[in-house]
Write a protein that binds this DNA or RNA. Structure first.
Length: 113
DNA sequence: CCAGTGACGGCTA
DNA sequence: TTAGCCGCCACTG
């Protein structure tokens, strides 16, 4: 069975941070990547979230890009699931973009400090 | 083995 | 200011 390399640790780390995101808050891929020390590899965070899809315990819908755009909504079970969940938590979303993104932004390097 | 793609982000023109 | 390119790392074809 193709055992996975230590790289999996990176995935677990991403999941840990995402799970710590408070309800009604959002963060960005780059913020998580930077917090993990892999700043610049925000794409890996996104890739990790794809793997987190089967894990409902991970609020991946709280993770958006630097612009606050729900870029990954197409990867959810339903394209509208991401926006719908955010609104459920009180996050206002307009045109696939999080309103007051700057206020709702949750930086693990500062909040989770 | 090599090339292209991708839930991104920062820099340069 | 806006638009475009490159860079990071992993996976697929």
């Amino acid at each position: 069975m193709k055992e996975e390399p230590a790289k999996k640790n990176f995935f677990e780390d991403v999941y840990a941070v995402v799970r710590l995101i408070p309800s009604g808050r959002v963060t960005s891929y780059g913020a998580i990547a930077s917090y993990l020390g892999s700043k610049g590899s925000a794409r890996m965070v996104g890739w990790a979230l794809i793997a987190s899809q089967p894990f409902a315990s991970i609020p991946a819908h709280r993770v958006v890009n630097r612009n606050g755009l729900l870029t990954g909504r197409q990867h959810f079970e339903e394209p509208d699931a991401m926006q719908r969940r955010l609104e459920e938590e009180g996050v206002r979303v307009e045109n696939n973009q999080v309103a007051n993104f700057t206020e709702l932004f949750w930086d693990p390097a500062k909040e989770l400090l």
